[in-house]
């Protein structure tokens, strides 16, 4: 593969994503606001590049947090992708492993319930915050927001395949772009 990039770059990828790994409660969605802030602040990507990467991560199969793999790749090539992936997925893997190991033996029903119900409002607040930040980051103003809201309503009310909606978003924007050029 490509030559190993500067170690300090890999270390800063690790330093940004490993702590985020531990706060991705409620799924990778919740950390997107913070990933956006950090990645753009240190100028690894521009805001437009970040939105592009986000869109690609939503079109791709697998966990949405692979967004981080893509950022690592864009910042530091192959090793950047490897380090970023291990940083975002690694720490919590040890955690779930330890819990899977203990869950079968201990009672602790009260703790289990407390964890489940206690983390719920935090997760909800984080996911909504990520949505808010993304809505503000997207180009296309009120029109993009209208598409986002229409997409939300469709997802809440129907069992439509999300890929179809994303495809519809592409078609609407490209169509509008073509009309505006004509």
């Amino acid at each position: 593969m490509s030559e190993i990039p500067h170690t300090s770059l890999l270390l800063s990828l690790l330093a940004v994503f490993a702590p985020l790994s531990l706060v991705t409660i409620g799924g990778g969605q919740s950390a997107i606001a913070d990933i956006n802030r950090q990645v753009v602040d240190v100028q690894w990507l521009s805001q437009a590049q970040f939105v592009d990467a986000f869109a690609i991560s939503r079109m791709a199969p697998g966990p949405g947090s692979l967004l981080v793999t893509l950022i690592g790749w864009q910042v530091a090539g192959f090793w950047g992708a490897v380090v970023a992936t291990l940083a975002i997925f690694g720490p919590t893997t040890f955690l779930i492993y330890a819990v899977a190991h203990m869950w079968s033996r201990n009672g602790g029903a009260r703790w289990k319930r407390a964890l489940e119900t206690g983390l719920r409002p935090v997760a909800a607040g984080m996911i909504l915050a990520s949505t808010y930040v993304l809505l503000q980051a997207i180009d296309g103003g009120w029109f993009a927001r209208a598409v986002a809201l229409a997409s939300t309503a469709t997802l809440l009310l129907t069992k439509v395949n999300p890929l179809l909606l994303i495809g519809a978003g592409v078609v609407i924007f490209v169509g509008l772009h073509a009309i505006s050029l004509a």
Binding site: G26, G27, Q29, I32, A48, V51, D52, F54, A55, I56, R58, M59, T117, R120, P121, A123, A124, I127, L128, S130, T131, L134, L135, I138, D139, G140, A144, R145, V147, A148, L149, A150, S151, T152, A153, T154, L155, L156, P162, L165, I166, A168, G169, V170, V171, I172, F173, V174, H177
Partner: peptide, 27 residues
């Protein structure tokens, strides 16, 4: 970039609908 912006706008709906579902589950 136009196409990806369209994809991102629709994909934000995934995020928002999940947020709404999660918020509904809060006591």
């Amino acid at each position: 970039h136009v196409a990806l912006t369209g994809a991102a706008a629709a994909a934000v709906g995934l995020s928002l609908s999940m947020g709404i579902t999660a918020a509904r589950a809060v006591p």
